[in-house]
């Protein structure tokens, strides 16, 4: 029972990154596994702003890619079918106490210029950058084929 409880608590804590200075919580981070020929992929996560002021997600850096930038996904309709597009943005906003969900088919961090192609089950390091100022949070990002449940 106790080991089970400890396990549960560990499960809850491990994916959460709490930075000393930036009042941000990052959960459920993962990067889509793609084949070695792919030049780009996407990373997803849930970011909670725990502070009293607006935060902006401006991007991330990692040794796996040359550029990691926020993108929004646009959805429009034509012939009754949904058209999805992608637009780079300067930043994505997280209001005080608010949550930013980066999800497949939605807003995401586009990982461009992949220099290595980590396989499913491997982990990569991301430094997620926020404004105002130059706030960085280092997180561990598992590489997965599917969105974790």
């Amino acid at each position: 029972m106790i080991t089970r409880l400890v396990f549960l608590v560990l499960c809850c804590i491990s994916p959460i990154a709490l930075a000393g200075s930036t009042p941000v919580k990052i959960e459920r981070a993962w990067m889509q596994a793609v084949p070695p020929v792919a030049e780009a992929t996407a990373a997803y996560m849930k970011i909670t702003n725990l502070g009293p002021t607006l935060l902006q997600l401006v991007g991330a850096s990692s040794s796996v890619a040359t550029k990691i930038e926020p993108m929004i996904t646009t959805r429009t309709e034509r012939n009754g079918q949904q058209i999805m597009g992608m637009e780079g943005v300067e930043h994505l906003e997280i209001p005080p106490g608010g949550v930013l969900e980066l999800k497949p088919g939605g807003n995401h961090l586009m990982v461009m210029g992949l220099v290595s192609h980590p396989k499913e089950g491997e982990h990569v390091k991301f430094s997620v950058r926020f404004a105002p100022g130059d706030q960085q949070i280092d997180i561990d990002v598992p590489v997965l084929q599917q969105e974790p449940k």
Binding site: Q32, A33, T73
Partner: peptide
């Protein structure tokens, strides 16, 4: 298309 980072791998 293969340069698609989000929708296509998903």
């Amino acid at each position: 298309f293969t340069h698609c980072p989000n929708v296509c791998p998903t």
